[in-house]
């Protein structure tokens, strides 16, 4: 390389940098503005959803709406009490099934490394992405079809299957982040494994376990598709009621749907916010 070419290249780069700077800065500003617009666009749907659900739902929401049983179409004064109790019953039953299985499976993953655990972990992650409607079909084929009966049990089973992978991964994560050194300390002291798991790991990870499971519950409460295949009547769960009433052309039915949507949304958001606050308090305490 000659001195002359080096000098000319230095001048050339300097000129290019100066010449292009205005363009680069404007492009940057423009792109940054577009990103900000995208962020606004990302928040907009939530705002719109909340606005419509609250403004429409509040019109029908009343004490009697919550505690009265549904009435046949055309007869005023009906409520959604059966849907609320139905949802609660189904989700409660699903929790009784899912929580212990998830906890034990998570303990299994927590204690084992290797191919089997990796395969189980992977299938949990993939199962978490399986559409809920397929889980509904599964419950239908396994419980409804052979027994010739729609039932809350079949619905609860479907929701339990839906929650299982989410809970397993959340539980394992909770045990890992909180309890690894506690666990090792317990084992080093010569404690029994079962006891270490019960007392040390589970207690240490409890706040995180609560957060993860709350999120799974929030997801299950809002599911509709699995119930479509497992429940006999739409008034047996809130989401199913929203679906059947919302898709009807009668204003009264749509009002009921908005009212139910408000109750459901309030419950689900409450659960999520509770989970967020729990997580936030944990991270603050850890600091």
């Amino acid at each position: 390389m000659t001195v002359a070419s080096a000098l000319s290249r230095r001048d050339l780069v300097r000129a290019a940098a100066q010449r292009s700077l205005t363009r680069r800065r404007i492009t940057g500003r423009l792109a940054q503005a577009l990103c900000a617009v995208a962020a606004v666009a990302s928040v907009a749907p939530l705002v719109a959803l909340l606005y419509y659900t609250i403004s429409r739902g509040a019109q029908v929401l009343s004490w009697s709406f919550l505690v009265n049983a549904p009435t046949p179409p055309g007869i005023p004064g009906g409520g959604i009490s059966t849907a609320i109790t139905g949802s609660a019953e189904i989700v409660g039953l699903a929790l009784v099934i899912a929580i212990p299985i998830a906890l034990l499976a998570a303990l299994f993953l927590f204690e084992r490394s290797g191919r089997l655990a990796a395969a189980l972990r992977f299938s949990a992650d993939v199962l978490a992405g399986v559409p809920s409607i397929i889980i509904g079909i599964f419950a239908y084929a396994l419980l409804v079809l052979p027994l010739h009966a729609f039932s809350n049990l079949a619905a609860a089973f479907a929701l339990a299957v839906l929650m299982l992978p989410i809970m397993i991964r959340a539980d394992e994560e909770a045990m890992r982040t909180i309890a690894l050194d506690l666990w090792e300390a317990g084992i080093a002291l010569g404690a029994r494994r079962g006891r270490v798991a019960r007392s040390v790991v589970l207690r240490g990870a409890l706040p995180d376990l609560v957060t993860g499971n709350l999120l799974a519950i929030a997801r299950a409460v809002g599911e509709t598709a699995p119930l479509l295949f497992t429940l006999a009547t739409p008034v047996a769960a809130m989401t199913l009621l929203i679906y059947t009433d919302g898709t009807q052309a009668f204003p009264i039915a749509q009002e009921t749907a908005w009212g139910t949507a408000l109750v459901l949304l309030a419950f689900v958001l409450l659960l999520s916010v509770a989970a967020k606050i729990a997580a936030w308090r944990i991270s603050r305490r850890a600091r």
């Binding site: 990302s42 928040v43 749907p45 939530l46 719109a48 959803l49 419509y52 659900t53 999120l215 929030a218 997801r219 409460v221 809002g222 599911e223 509709t224 989401t239 929203i242 679906y243 919302g246 898709t247 749509q254 749907a257 908005w258 949507a261 459901l264 949304l265 689900v268 958001l269 659960l271 999520s272 916010v273 967020k276």
Partner: peptide, 20 residues
């Protein structure tokens, strides 16, 4: 806020899409 959107049940999004 965007995380909260994930918590909104799909049926509520569907209802909003259908009616609004």
């Amino acid at each position: 806020l965007i995380g909260l959107l994930a918590a909104v049940p799909s049926i509520v999004v569907g209802l909003w899409g259908l009616i609004v």
